[in-house]
C-alpha cells in the first residue's frame, strides 16, 4: 500500500537528523524507567502535550502560513466534551475524545468558512476574537459548569477506558503513543496532496489558484486537521487534570503558547513543534515554579514569551530549525 509506505517514508531527511530523533525517541521510551522527580514527569507530560498541540498548529500555521492565535477554543471543546460526557453519561475517554474532535471540527468549519476570506493579520486577530467569544459563552453556560468549570468524578479503580490512573507513568505512555501517531501523521501530511497544495498556497495564492487549487477549501480542511490534534489533547487534559476551568483551558495564553511551539522551533518543518516544546516547556515549568513564590512578578512569564516572539520575528522567522538549516548550508553542521 502506497499510503503505508508514505507514512513511514523519511527518505528526504538527512541521516544525522534521523539519528538524533532516534536517540531522542529512545530516551522518551525509557524515561519513566529512569529515576525522576514528579516535577520532571509533569514537565515531560506537558512537553508531549505541547508537541502535539504544536504539530496540529504547524499544519495550518506553519505549512499553510496562516497564523492562528485561537487554538485554545478547540482544546476547550475537547476537554469539556470529555468532561460532560463522563459526568452526565459515564462515557469513556476513547468515545468522548472522538466525539469532542467531531464537535471541534464542526465548530472549526463554522469559524473557518468566513475567517479564511480574510488575510494575514486580519485572520490572526479574528481567530483570537472567536476564541474569546467562545470562552465567554462557556463561562456563563451552567451545563458546562460556567466560570467554575467542571470536576471529573474519580473512578474507584484505575481505568484505561476512562483514562484515570494513579500514576503519571500511564498518562505518559498514552501520550507518547499519541505523540508518535501524530508525528507519523504529519510526516504523511507534509508530502500528501493537501500538504503540497498548502505549501503552494503559502508561496503564492494566485499561482496556486491557477493550478486548480481551491485555496479557500484547502485552508478550511487543514484548519480542521489542526483542530483535531488540539481537541484530542484537550480531552486528554481533562482526564489528566480532573479539573477543568474555561479561564485556563480556553485562555488566550494557551492559544499563544500553542502557536509559539512551532514558531520558536521552526514553522513549517517536521521537527519545529517538537524542538519548540522541548525548549519552551521546561522554561515554562521552571519559570512557573520560580515565579509561583514571588508575588508581584506574576505575568513576567508572558513578558518573556513576548520577548522571544519578537527576537524570532526580527532575526530568524523560521525559528530554531531555521538557524540549524542556515548553519548547515554554510557547512558548519
Amino acid at each position: 500500500m502506497e499510503v503505508i509506505r508514505n507514512i513511514f517514508d523519511l527518505s528526504d531527511i538527512p541521516r544525522k537528523d534521523l539519528t538524533v530523533f532516534g536517540i531522542f525517541s529512545l530516551f522518551l521510551l525509557i524515561f519513566p524507567l529512569i529515576p525522576h522527580s514528579s516535577f520532571a514527569m509533569a514537565t515531560m507530560i506537558e512537553f508531549l502535550m505541547f508537541s502535539l498541540y504544536g504539530m496540529g498548529w504547524n499544519t495550518i500555521g506553519g505549512y499553510g502560513g496562516q497564523v492562528d492565535l485561537g487554538k485554545a477554543q478547540y482544546a476547550g471543546i475537547g476537554a469539556f466534551t470529555t468532561a460532560v460526557m463522563l459526568i452526565h453519561w459515564n462515557i469513556p475517554f476513547w468515545i468522548s475524545a472522538p466525539v469532542g474532535m467531531i464537535f471541534a471540527i464542526i465548530w472549526s468549519f463554522a469559524i473557518g468558512y468566513p475567517l479564511f476570506r480574510m488575510r494575514g493579520h486580519y485572520f490572526a486577530i479574528a481567530t483570537i476574537a472567536t476564541s474569546l467569544v467562545l470562552l465567554d459563552v462557556f463561562q456563563s453556560w451552567n451545563f458546562v459548569g460556567a466560570a467554575k468549570g467542571l470536576e471529573l468524578p474519580l473512578k474507584s479503580m484505575p481505568s484505561l477506558l476512562y483514562l484515570q490512573f494513579r500514576s503519571d507513568t500511564y498518562y505518559y505512555y498514552i501520550l507518547l503513543f499519541l505523540f508518535f501517531f501524530g508525528f507519523f501523521y504529519i510526516n504523511w501530511f507534509r508530502k500528501s496532496r493537501l500538504g503540497f497544495q498548502l505549501r503552494a498556497i503559502k508561496d503564492n495564492e494566485e499561482v496556486a489558484r491557477s493550478l486548480g487549487i481551491n485555496v479557500h477549501w484547502c485552508k478550511i480542511k487543514t484548519y480542521a486537521i489542526a483542530t483535531s490534534f488540539v481537541a484530542v489533547v484537550g480531552s486528554f487534559h481533562a482526564c489528566y487534570n480532573f479539573n477543568i476551568d474555561p479561564e485556563d483551558i480556553m485562555s488566550l495564553d494557551l492559544s499563544i503558547l500553542i502557536a509559539m511551539m512551532a514558531m520558536v522551533g521552526g514553522a513549517g518543518s517536521l521537527w519545529g513543534p517538537i524542538i519548540g516544546a522541548a525548549v519552551l516547556i521546561p522554561l515554562k515549568s521552571y519559570l512557573g515554579s520560580w515565579l509561583g513564590g514571588k508575588e508581584g512578578l506574576a505575568g513576567l512569564d508572558l513578558v518573556i514569551y513576548a520577548l522571544i516572539i519578537m527576537i524570532i520575528a526580527a532575526f530568524e522567522p523560521r525559528g530554531i530549525w531555521g538557524i540549524v538549516e542556515k548553519a548547515r548550508k554554510r557547512g558548519k553542521i
Partner: peptide, 19 residues
Amino acid sequence: FVASGDLSVLENIMVGSFL
C-alpha cells in the same frame, strides 16, 4: 512570477501534477 517559498523545483512541478 514570484516564488518566495520553500518548494524545490521538482516540488513546484508536483503541485501541478497533483491536480
